[in-house]
């Protein structure tokens, strides 16, 4: 950023265009694809309200992730009050990915991670926050956040490799 440019805040439209995708990825990772839209809407409406008070030159992405973090927690809480846990969630993934390509397995594996691991993976890998900042959101130490992120990634990898080895042994031979 050139000197003098930090004084003025950009139109919020530019913020939505630049950060909208990252925030949606984060919400999808934390909440699953179907609840993510509501959390995204809550996040950006709250951000729009608070935008004039954001200090000029602040890290807008980190600010948005902080808001998204809170809104996702609201949804997690509302969800646990509302929904009964089921062993086999209804299949609603038809619009997402091609069956058999591992996409559904990955999405499924993400939703099965413990909340802290989903958050750590989302904030560190998708939003690019350093683990110090992730820890500030989650509470606990940076090291604990790093461990949650690493554990999450490990589980995701093994879920996908289990899927792939299944695919290898299948008669389709399309992988």
């Amino acid at each position: 950023m050139k000197p003098g440019q930090m004084v003025n805040k950009r139109p919020f439209e530019a913020v939505v265009r630049e950060e909208g995708a990252t925030v949606l990825r984060v919400c999808r990772a934390v909440l699953g694809v179907h609840d993510a839209d509501d959390a995204w809407s809550d996040t950006f409406l709250a951000a729009l309200q608070a935008y004039p008070a954001l200090p000029a030159g602040a890290n807008v992405e980190a600010w948005l992730v902080t808001i998204a973090h809170r809104k996702c927690i609201d949804h997690v809480r509302a969800g646990t009050r509302r929904a009964l846990p089921v062993d086999h969630p209804p299949e609603q993934h038809s619009s997402l990915g091609i069956p058999g390509d591992g996409h559904e397995e990955l999405l499924d594996a993400v939703t099965r991670l413990p909340l802290k691991q989903r958050q750590a993976v989302a904030y560190h890998y998708l939003a690019g926050l350093p683990y110090n900042d992730v820890a500030a959101l989650l509470g606990g130490t940076a090291e604990a956040a790093r461990r949650a992120g690493a554990d999450g990634v490990k589980t995701l990898r093994s879920a996908l490799s289990a899927h792939q080895s299944l695919a290898h042994t299948s008669s389709k031979g399309d992988i």
């Binding site: 939505v16 909208g20 995708a21 949606l24 990825r25 999808r28 990772a29 694809v33 839209d37 995204w40 809407s41 950006f44 619009s95 997402l96 990915g97 591992g102 996409h103 559904e104 990955l106 999405l107 993400v110 993976v121 890998y125 998708l126 990634v153 995701l156 990898r157 996908l160």
Partner: peptide, 17 residues
């Protein structure tokens, strides 16, 4: 690895906007 989270991202963003 997390790329499947991007499925249908652009149309989703358009309607969310």
């Amino acid at each position: 690895l997390l790329h499947p989270l991007d499925a249908g991202l652009e149309p989703a963003i358009a309607s969310l906007h």
